[in-house]
Structure formats: C-alpha cells, structure tokens
C-alpha cells in the first residue's frame, strides 16, 4: 500500500444514511464549511450519497443516520446498518422522534393514501413514523430540525476523542439568558415552547423576537402541563396548542402526551353528556 492508502485505512470510516427525511441534517454536515476539511482529514468518508457517489464497503466505525422508519423496507435496512456500524448516532428530529411525518400516527394512513396516490396499491408503507431507536440500539441521539452544525462537529470531535459530547439537555431558556435575550413570552406575550424544549439551536427564534417552535424536542425535565396552562393564559385555544406540540417532534413522548392531553381535555363532553 502507498503511504496515503495506509493513512486512509487508519482513519475511522464514516457512513451517512438516509431514511424518511428532507436531507436537511445531512446538508448541515456539508454546511460545516470551515470544519469540513478537518472532518475529511479526521475520518474516512466512506459512504455519503448526498456528497459523493463513491462507496466504500462496510463495516463502518461511525454511522450517522438521518430520517425516520416509515416502510417495511426501512425496518430491514436499519437492522442491516446497525449490524455494520460500530457507533450509531441518529441525527435530527426525524431520526430521534419520527419527524413531522409522525403526524400520520394520529391519522388513517389507508384513507389519505387512497386520496393522494393514483395507484395506492404500489405503495408499501407503515401506519406509523417512528424514530430509529424504536427499532435498533442507538449510541447517541442528536436533536434538532435541522441539527445544529456546531453540535454535529462536537459529536464528531467527541467520537474521535473518545469522550462524551458536550450537548446540554436543559431548556432553551438557558441559552436565551446566556445570550442576554429578553424573554419573548413575558415581555411581549407571544407563546413560546422554550421552557419545555431542549437547548441546542442557540435560541435562534427568540433571538429574533419570536417564540420557540420546539425544533430540538423536549428538555430533560419538561413540564408540559404547566406550559399548556401558560399557553392558554397567553390566549391560545386548544386546537392551536395541540398544533404547537405536533410539529417536527410530534412523536417525542413528552410532546405527544402533551398534545393528547390537550386534545382529550378539549373534546371532553360537559357533565350530562356521554360518559
């Protein structure tokens, strides 16, 4: 082997996989402009169809998995990928919570399949959109819609250094306060999911005077019952509250339960009606 070939062989092999998703998280990796060359020097990018047609056979030391499981074929393929991967990291709201497509979990898939597609019989799909961890063991879940590129680089640096990634699981409120942002719901009355949402985006929306949309999923101690009361106080009706919990992380257990609690409470028939 040449020196270059030996050098390539000693770097850990990285694979990037896609399931049901918009590719935005993979693009976050390509958007690491300043760090991209360092990443390419630190790992051997062996499988990454979004970036290159060249394919190097597995097994892979590190797999990054984007997207959720929505078809029987997905189920088969994720087990194959797990078997070929040393460390498996899921990236983004689809892979960690089922994504926006997890709205199907509350819908009748048969019904809209027949409405949307001319030949629904060609489709092979599941009734649900589920995170990767519902099917195989996952070593680390990186949140976000899309993932934050700084956090993605941190996860790669931590993998290479054999240490734990520095990814906080506290609320977006911490990021607002560290940045010196003025609290949006308190100073302007706009609803905000920040108190129940995990940090990581750098409090992007509140930094521009908008409430948080919950792109990074529930924080480690989310109290959605209390936030629901606060959203109601700020003037949101039940339908709107259900919708804010059912976006990119609709399938995250805490947000899913919160939306169902609001939906059930608002559909409860007053005393004297059906029991």
């Amino acid at each position: 082997m040449t020196d270059a070939a030996i050098e390539t062989a000693t770097r850990p092999k990285l694979a990037v996989w896609k399931f049901a998703s918009c590719d935005g998280c993979q693009l976050s990796l390509l958007n690491c402009e300043d760090e991209l060359l360092s990443i390419a020097e630190a790992v051997h990018i062996a499988y990454f169809p979004e970036a290159t047609r060249a394919v190097v056979e597995g097994p892979y030391e590190l797999s990054l998995v984007e997207g959720s499981i929505t078809t029987p074929e997905d189920v088969r393929r994720i087990h194959e990928i797990r078997a070929q991967s040393g460390t498996l990291v899921t990236i983004g709201a689809c892979a960690t919570a089922g994504g926006i497509q997890a709205l199907r979990n509350w819908a009748d898939v048969e019904e809209y399949r027949s409405i949307v597609y001319a030949h629904p019989e060609y489709l092979s799909t599941l009734d649900t959109s589920t995170p990767i961890a519902s099917h195989v063991d996952v070593d680390y879940e990186l949140r976000g819609c899309p993932v934050d590129k700084g956090q993605l680089v941190e996860v790669l640096a931590a993998f290479l250094g054999g240490r734990k990634p520095r990814i906080p699981t506290y609320s977006v409120c911490v990021e607002c306060k560290l940045k010196g942002n003025v609290c949006v719901p308190i100073a302007s009355g706009q609803p905000c999911l920040g108190p129940v949402t995990q940090a990581g985006c750098g409090a992007l929306c509140p930094s521009y005077g908008r409430g948080c949309y919950g792109c990074f999923g529930p924080q480690d101690s989310a109290n959605t019952d209390s936030l629901t009361r606060q959203l109601t106080e700020l003037g949101m009706n039940s339908d709107d509250i259900v919708r804010v919990y059912r976006t990119f992380n609709a399938g995250a257990p805490e947000f899913s339960a919160a939306s169902e609690a609001v939906a059930v409470a608002s559909s409860t028939v007053p005393a004297g009606g059906e029991s």
Binding site: S171, K177, L178, V196, Q219, L227, R229
Partner: peptide, 13 residues
Amino acid sequence: ASRCLACTNCTMV
C-alpha cells in the same frame, strides 16, 4: 413542582 417548568429562568435572572 406541578407549576415549575424547571426552565432555570429564576436562577438566570
């Protein structure tokens, strides 16, 4: 605790 959001705002301000 049923009302507390564990959001940390009180400590940050």
